[in-house]
């Protein structure tokens, strides 16, 4: 009996402290008012805002709408521990904004 007590305590401890993943975050990263930590993303956010500003609000090119959406994804992924995915999404945004960006801008 004196040997079973520590074993049961260990089991209780293990059951209560393990089995659940860490808390997620930044699933709504675009909502955060704080500046984007990633400088490249911040650069792209600004570039996209400039590009969209060149068109009337009711005549936005679909390319910029898609870029906006993809940039949101990249920001979410960057904040949500999916840095490799974020890099891909960022590259996709850069490709969509290729005509709006100067060479090497936001790279």
């Amino acid at each position: 009996m004196h040997r079973a007590l520590p074993l049961s305590l260990l089991a209780m401890t293990l059951a209560g402290c393990t089995g659940w993943p860490t808390a997620g975050r930044h699933g709504f990263a675009e909502h955060t008012l704080a500046p984007t930590p990633d400088s490249q993303l911040a650069c792209l956010v600004e570039a996209l805002a400039r590009a969209r500003g060149r068109h009337p609000a009711d005549a936005q090119p679909a390319r910029l709408v898609i870029a906006d959406q993809t940039l949101t994804r990249a920001r979410r992924e960057a904040g949500g521990d999916l840095s490799a995915d974020a890099a891909r999404s960022t590259a996709a945004v850069r490709a969509l904004l290729a005509t709006d960006l100067a060479a090497e801008e936001c790279s």
């Binding site: 659940w20 993943p21 860490t22 808390a23 997620g24 975050r25 930044h26 699933g27 709504f28 990263a29 909502h31 955060t32 994804r73 979410r76 992924e77 904040g79 949500g80 521990d81 999916l82 995915d85």
Partner: peptide, 24 residues
Amino acid sequence: DQARSFDLLGFARTGDFASLPVVR
């Protein structure tokens, strides 16, 4: 690949949108 958890009850109490995990 990764897994993340979300505390809906905690979110309801705090309103911390930063705690929403990424879903795609």
